[in-house]
């Protein structure tokens, strides 16, 4: 079964499956233990190393450590950043991170939509939202405004095993009732190319005002999961790895681009649109009767057509012309015995250089304009009652 087409072959909206977009991805940690080596952590010894790669490694990969660890933090700044480039745009569903040590008292989740050039908050987790992030704690009613916003949730709780779980549903920051299909604001909210986790404040094991009492803190975590769907705007059911190692959508419906975010060059009879569950909004090939390889979109024609067709064929070949290469160019006429799509659908007028008054024939009948007394489709004979003269200006004169 083809998720992007129905049984009759008609296009329908389709989306890739839900995956852990972080699985196997590189993680950039601002702090990792083991350089220089300590008794507990040695970056050069696989049995005692705690690299950031463990955050996104497949479960059960090695017999060694399973948790990433930061360096021991004693004084400010106590924040550590974990950045995961996802490789392309994803539509996020959830983010989770399992802590191997007591979970931090404050964590910020950020996203980038431009491969790390700019960042925007997705959510905050803190026992003191106002002090750490300048935000009120989670209001019972959810976002105050009409659109999604980064809210401050309670910090993750310590569990009996000494760890804890940070779990964030991306739609938690969104007002109820917004639908991904119909809300561009929500589509923007869930879209990310990179995820950043900022471990802002540790759960200090001591009184920070008393330097003697402060115990060095180590952030430690594993299983960073970024649940989401490869973003293909409803025009692909899977993403594929290119030869260069880039992840791209397997675009259908006449679309192209890493996110199927534009129409293919010849598929511009109407503007690109994201597919919905009700309408695939497929890009449609221009109608050029097989005589052109390129076309462009004209919004004015599209409006005038009742938003049905706006494609204009470019460089019509085979002596055709017109917006759809649907008639013959000047000096040619339609051969009624051939289909419009036939490479030889247009025949040269072939008007006689002396008998015809011009070189352009009737585009439908092929009749050339004849001088007085001349007849024939190409004006190559004298009409009955006329005979050929010696003058090329009046090639046929009345028979005396």
């Amino acid at each position: 079964a083809d998720p992007c087409h129905d049984e009759g072959g008609a296009p329908r909206g389709c989306v890739p499956g839900l995956v852990n977009a972080a699985l196997g991805r590189e993680v950039l940690a601002s702090s990792t233990c083991g350089r220089p080596a300590t008794r507990a952590c040695d970056a050069s010894d696989p049995r005692r190393a705690h690299p950031a790669a463990l955050l996104t490694a497949a479960a059960g990969g090695t017999a060694g450590p399973v948790c990433w660890r930061s360096e021991a933090l004693v004084r400010a700044p106590l924040n550590v950043t974990l950045t995961v480039p996802l490789g392309k745009a994803f539509e996020l569903v959830f983010i989770s991170l399992r802590f191997c040590s007591p979970p931090p008292a404050s964590v910020a989740l950020l996203k980038s939509q431009d491969h790390g050039r700019s960042w925007a908050p997705l959510g905050f987790f803190s026992s003191r939202c106002g002090m750490d992030y300048g935000r009120p704690p989670l209001p019972a009613t959810g976002p105050a405004g009409p659109g999604p916003e980064a809210l401050c949730f309670p910090a993750p709780q310590a569990e009996p095993d000494g760890g804890g779980l940070l779990a964030f549903s991306v739609q938690d920051g969104s007002p109820p009732g917004l639908d991904l299909d119909s809300s561009p604001v929500l589509q923007d909210w869930v879209t990310a190319t990179d995820i950043r986790v900022v471990l802002t404040r540790p759960a200090l094991l001591g009184d920070p005002r008393d330097s003697e009492a402060v115990v060095p803190y180590v952030y430690s975590a594993t299983e960073l999961q970024v649940g989401g769907r490869c973003k293909c705007n409803g025009h692909a059911s899977q993403c594929l790895l290119e030869a260069q190692g880039r992840l791209v959508c397997d675009c259908q419906h006449g679309t192209e681009g890493p996110d199927c975010g534009r129409c293919k060059p010849f598929y511009c009879d109407r503007p690109w649109q994201r597919a919905t569950t009700r309408d695939a909004h497929a890009c449609i090939a221009c109608s050029c009767n097989g005589h052109a390889r390129r076309c462009r979109f004209n919004m004015e024609l599209y409006r005038l057509s009742g938003r049905r067709s706006g494609g204009v064929c470019l460089n019509c070949r085979h002596d055709t012309a017109g917006r759809h290469c649907h008639y013959c160019r000047e000096g040619f006429y339609r051969d009624p015995g051939r289909a419009l799509s036939d490479r030889r659908a247009c025949r040269a007028c072939d008007c006689h250089p002396v008998g015809a008054a011009g070189k352009t024939c009737n585009q439908t009948t092929g009749q050339c304009p004849c001088k007085d007394g001349v007849t024939g489709l190409t004006c190559n004979r004298c009409a009955p009652g006329f005979q050929q003269s010696r003058s090329p200006v009046a090639p046929c004169v009345k028979t005396p």
Binding site: V354, R390, S391, P392, V393
Partner: peptide, 23 residues
Amino acid sequence: EVMPTLDMTLFDWTDYEDLKPEV
């Protein structure tokens, strides 16, 4: 009656050299 096609060799181009088609 089908008239014969125009015979280009019969035309006198003396005064119309500029109109003479290239052969």
